[in-house]
Computed example of a mutant assay.
Amino acid sequence: MVPEERDGRDHGEERERPRRARRPAPESKRPAPANRRAPAETRRPATTARSAARSAARQLRDLTGHDPESVTSVERQRDGGWLIGVEVLETHRIPDSTDILAEYRVEVDDDGELVSYRRARRYYRGRSEERT
Rank of each mutant, 00 (worst) to 15 (best):
P95L: 05
R37W: 11
I100N: 02
H11G: 09
D109A: 04
A53G: 06
A49W: 01
R30V: 13
D62C: 00
E130R: 14
T47E: 04
R118G: 14
G85W: 02
L63S: 10
L101F: 07
Y123Q: 03
R119T: 03
V88Q: 06
R122Y: 05
I84E: 01
A49G: 09
L101E: 10
W82A: 03
K29M: 10
G65S: 08
Q59G: 02
S97M: 11
S97A: 13
P68T: 06
R22D: 12
I84A: 02
S97V: 13
S70E: 14
A53W: 00
S116I: 00
R93L: 15
L89V: 12
P95E: 07
R121C: 00
D96T: 14
R119A: 06
R36F: 10
G126T: 05
R36C: 11
A52Q: 06
S128N: 05
A56W: 05
R105W: 01
E16R: 14
S116N: 13
P24V: 00
K29I: 01
P68S: 07
D99P: 13
T91E: 13
E14Q: 11
S128K: 14
S55L: 00
G112A: 09
R19V: 12
H11E: 11
L89W: 08
A57S: 15
D79S: 11
E90L: 06
P18K: 15
R131W: 02
R105L: 14
H92L: 14
G12A: 03
V86E: 03
E69I: 15
R36L: 15
E107R: 15
Y123R: 05
L83F: 02
L83G: 01
D110T: 03
E13W: 13
V86M: 05
V86I: 04
S51F: 00
T42C: 01
S97L: 12
V106H: 02
R118Y: 07
P33D: 14
E113V: 08
V106T: 00
R19Q: 12
V71Q: 01
